[in-house]
């Protein structure tokens, strides 16, 4: 039983092909961007606002607050990246409830792609914030002996990000598939609901962990009063942050 959307090829030409993962991703992109465009083209700044605008503001404000809480920094620079991670994953996971739709996050290719984005984004943000030299010093912190472990940590957490999301979503789909063959009524619905919750939680975890990695890479920019607590953040030890518990639950 293979339910990875990668295996569903829709169009093929030489080595290029378009599979369901890409197609569904485009669908989500159209949905998110189109919906946003429809709502934000008529934004008002009066006291009374349309409820759709209100919903968008709630979402954006919620993401900003989460970023601010995790990173103790202004969310302006990270919002597009982290927010899009969350919105893409959560909408992909929630869309799984639509019959015939296979969540692109259930594909290891997608989760790998997202993890690679995070893998690249973390040093980028770190270098932008602190400069190359200062960022690279993180790898020999606290002693140069830690350098190989820190580098291994960089890769392992990227792989962990990819596999965690993929595993959760894929397993949810597989469990529902198995249950459908065993008990066609009632139980699959419960599992579907559970899948929705898991999907939202995984989206949250993915986005928050990404933010934690980025925050640890930009630790020098943190608010001075929080420095002692935040100084324990380093690229190789994200579990010491305030989201370590969430990470453990996953």
């Amino acid at each position: 039983m293979n339910i990875s959307p990668d295996s569903i090829i829709l169009w093929e030409w030489k080595f290029l092909h378009i599979n369901a993962t890409m197609a569904f991703t485009w669908g989500i992109m159209v949905l998110l961007a189109g919906g946003s465009w429809l709502i934000t083209r008529r934004l008002t700044s009066v006291a009374e606002i349309p409820r759709w605008q209100n919903m968008l503001e709630v979402i954006v404000t919620g993401i900003r607050d989460q970023i601010r809480e995790v990173s103790r920094q202004e969310p302006g620079l990270y919002l597009p990246f982290v927010g899009t991670l969350f919105l893409f994953i959560v909408s992909a996971n929630l869309m799984a409830i639509v019959p015939g739709f296979i969540a692109p996050t259930g594909s290891l290719s997608t989760t790998t792609a997202l993890a690679i984005c995070v893998f690249v984004a973390v040093p980028l943000f770190g270098i932008v914030h602190e400069g190359l030299r200062s960022y690279l010093k993180h790898y020999i912190h606290p002693t140069p002996l830690m350098l190989p472990f820190n580098i291994i940590g960089e890769f392992s957490r990227t792989i962990a990000l990819a596999v965690r999301l993929y595993g959760n979503i894929m397993s949810g789909s597989i469990i529902i598939g198995i249950l459908l063959s065993l008990t066609p009524f009632f139980f699959p619905i419960v599992m579907q609901l559970l899948g929705l919750i898991t999907g939202v939680i995984q989206a949250y975890i993915f986005a928050i962990l990404s933010m934690v990695y980025i925050a640890s890479a930009t630790a020098a920019q943190q608010i001075p009063s929080d420095k002692p607590e935040q100084s324990s953040h380093n690229p190789g030890n994200p579990k010491k942050t305030n989201t370590g518990e969430t990470d453990g639950q996953s």
Binding site: M29, L85, S109, A113
Partner: peptide, 15 residues
């Protein structure tokens, strides 16, 4: 599928 990975990276950045 590395093509898919690449496509998804591009898709994500576009998104």
């Amino acid at each position: 599928d590395w093509l898919t990975v690449f496509a998804q990276i591009v898709n994500f950045l576009v998104l």
